[in-house]
Design a protein around this nucleic acid. Structure first.
Length: 665
DNA sequence: CCGTCGACGTTATTGTCTAT
DNA sequence: ATAGACAATAACGTCGACGG
């Protein structure tokens, strides 16, 4: 019993002791808390304030003032961090010339800092800069240390009765902590805002009248405005003394390989040898190329239809039926059989295809179809007609588009034993690809004109029906427009199937002493050159002699070459030749002088009509309009690679600044 | 303390270049 | 073609120094 009581007593004592300790601890904590509340660490609601390190200042560090600068300008650091984040393993960054540097100047308009300055400044009578700085130094020695009184002086506007912050300074403070910096690399048109304004007003006016605003028209208008009001813009003197000519940036001009002439000659020699070796008739030489086309409806609506046209020409001057590839995934994407001229075109051998891809560019599938459905039937028919044996070889000359270079396509071509392949040198398509050189332009012209005609027809019909011109609607449904393209092709085919035109196209591909015409390839000079190769270039000679060069040419093309052709869509819009009769163009290309003249006339005439529009609008004064008339603005070919051929010279009689580069080449 | 000056840092945007 | 990244650019801001 006693013992139990003792134990009980002892435990009670222990408990009391413990309770005491707890009480004391609680009192201590309360005391601490109260002191913290007094110090402002706790809010009145009993919660600890979250500590945000807005300005991470190290009071003991001697570099604290530099940190203030860095922290007041987060811009640099954020940018640097972004940069590091972007430099992933797969990404090769451009070499930096200047290392990242920490900020040294303080941005005093950082909200935290400006608040102090503003508060202090209001307490200082007459806002004496030196006094403001001194007071700030006392209050916050770290942050205000680098503040210079002359800087503060710059902020103060003393012009009024009492000194105050300058308006610009207040605006900056309001805008935030970013320093106001105006962009400096000004556009070349920057000094001429009134001209820019005029042009901006002029173009919608033209549109409202009903003129279709095309890139060439726009370009013509812009150039004429500047030529009349600020001609010096086209030939400015740089600050360093060298005069430069206003020109297109380099990214818009594709560069020819340096050794294009050599490459093209080799290509011609390859063909020549194959022709000689296999005794190929010009009728069995085929060149094909694809051309993108699109319809641009009035009033700058989105493009509504796009198809690729594969044109094949033969060395003897024939045009094979077109292969037409439409964008889309099923047979529905092709024109319907009830379309105008559909049966005609199909009977002529044309093939309508869908690409199956989201774009309308030619793929491997369509390429196979081209070979199987157009080229091979033609070859067989021709061989029969000429009484040639079935194993007579034929030559196909194509550009090194990615599809054509692919292993898939080449192995497919290996199965066609009677066809030899020759590739157009990389990046030389515009020079050494007959289809490209001679056929595309008139073809595009015809398509454009047919499209134009369709629209005119429709509008005319609509005008008869509708009560007011406003109600005329131009249909832009895909299937309808697609069906119309059939008619264009039907018109284009006989127009382009012009022996002289096609022969001229082959002949127009010239490199050094050779061109791609059959006569030249089989001529005496070529034979001589081939013979000379034995001594001048033995490796190439050996390559020509090897058996594989006949069946499957070696392809020494780097993979990173730029794709030709991909930009076809873009090209088609540059040139505004809608008013040029196709006959004139073709005649011009063939070389008859009369046609050439009329073409030039028409070309400048088209632009003159543009200038006359300006007069109607009254946005140009009479002087400038007159100036433009005498100076026929000739827009040259849409070719990005410009060929110094006689054809081009016929286009551009008056060389302007955008032509001068060509002349020097 | 006021006013000014030269030196140089900071900034946003376009040109140019690279990669996809 | 297109997107993204860096370089070039010159006005404006900041700073230190000087003289009155």
């Amino acid at each position: 019993m006693i013992r139990d009581r003792q134990v009980e007593n002892a435990s009670w004592k222990a408990l009391a002791k413990r309770d005491n300790a707890t009480e004391r601890q609680q009192r201590k904590r309360e005391h601490e808390k109260q002191s913290e509340i007094d110090a402002g660490i706790w809010s009145s609601s009993g919660r600890k304030y979250k500590v945000r390190k807005l300005v991470d200042q190290d009071l003991t560090s001697s570099q604290s003032s530099e940190q203030v600068a860095e922290q007041s300008r987060p811009h640099c650091e954020i940018k640097e961090q972004e940069r590091k984040k972007n430099q992933g393993p797969g990404r090769k960054a451009r070499l930096r010339q200047n290392e990242y540097q920490k900020a040294t100047y303080v941005n005093w308009f950082d909200p935290l800092i400006w608040l102090q300055i503003d508060t202090v400044a209001k307490t200082i009578p007459l806002m004496g800069p030196a006094k403001i700085v001194a007071r700030l130094q006392k209050l916050n020695p770290i942050q205000s240390k680098p503040l210079n009184k002359s800087t503060v002086w710059y902020w103060i506007d003393c012009s009024g009765p009492s000194p105050r912050w300058k308006d610009s300074i207040l605006a900056r403070m309001k805008a935030g902590d970013r320093a106001p910096c105006k962009p400096v690399m000004l556009s070349i048109l920057e000094p001429y805002p009134h001209i820019v304004e005029k042009i901006i007003k002029h173009l919608p006016n033209l549109r409202d009248v009903g003129v279709s605003i095309t890139i060439p028209l726009t370009r013509g208008i812009i150039i004429s405005h500047f030529k009349s009001e600020a001609p010096e813009i086209f030939n400015t003197t740089h600050k360093n003394g060298t005069s430069f000519q206003f020109k297109c940036s380099d990214s818009f001009t594709c560069k020819l390989p340096v050794d294009w002439e050599d490459q093209c000659q080799r290509s011609a020699m390859r063909m020549a040898r194959i022709i000689k070796e296999e005794d190929i008739s010009p009728k069995l030489i085929i060149n094909f190329n694809q051309t993108g086309s699109r319809q641009v409806p009035l009033h700058g609506e989105e493009e509504k239809i796009a198809f690729t046209l594969v044109t094949c020409i033969t060395g003897s001057g024939e045009l094979l039926p077109f292969q037409v590839i439409y964008k889309g995934k099923g047979a529905r994407s092709c024109p319907k059989p009830m379309a105008e001229n559909y049966t005609d075109t199909v009977e002529a051998g044309m093939v309508f295809e869908f690409s199956g891809e989201p774009n309308h560019w030619s793929s491997h599938k369509t390429m196979r179809s081209l070979i199987d459905n157009i080229i091979i039937p033609y070859l067989e028919k021709t061989k029969k007609r000429l009484n040639l044996p079935p194993d007579q070889k034929a030559l196909v000359y194509l550009d090194c588009w990615s599809v054509h270079r692919s292993e898939e396509f080449r192995s497919f071509m290996k199965t066609k034993e009677t066809i030899c392949i020759c590739y157009v040198p990389a990046n030389c398509t515009s020079l050494f690809q007959p289809c490209d050189a001679g056929i595309q332009q008139p073809l595009k012209l015809i398509c454009k004109q047919c499209c134009h005609e369709d629209v005119v027809k429709e509008v005319t019909a609509g005008l008869k029906m509708a009560s007011s011109p406003v109600e005329v609607r131009i249909s832009n449904e895909m299937p309808l427009l697609r069906d119309r393209t059939v008619r264009w092709l039907w018109i284009a085919y006989p127009e382009l199937n012009h022996r002289e035109l096609i022969l001229k196209a082959w002949k127009g591909c010239r490199a050094g002493a050779f061109d791609l015409s059959f006569e030249c390839l089989t001529g005496r000079e070529m034979g001589w050159a081939l013979w000379e190769l034995r001594t001048t270039d033995p490796t190439f000679h050996a390559e020509l002699l090897s058996a594989s060069s006949i069946t499957m040419p070696l392809l020494k093309i780097p993979d990173n070459i730029q794709e030709d052709n991909v930009d076809g869509d873009y090209e088609s819009d540059i040139e505004d030749d809608s008013s040029v009769p196709v006959h004139s163009l073709i005649a011009c290309m063939i070389g008859s002088e009369k046609g050439a003249e009329s073409y030039v006339c028409n070309q400048s005439g088209a632009l003159q009509s543009a200038t006359s529009f300006m007069e109607v609008q009254g946005t140009l004064d009479g002087q400038s309009a007159g100036k433009n008339e005498g100076n026929s603005v000739v827009i040259d070919s849409s070719r990005r690679l410009r060929k110094p051929s006689s054809r081009l010279q016929a286009y551009a009689k008056n060389a302007e600044w955008w032509d001068q580069e060509d002349e020097s080449k």
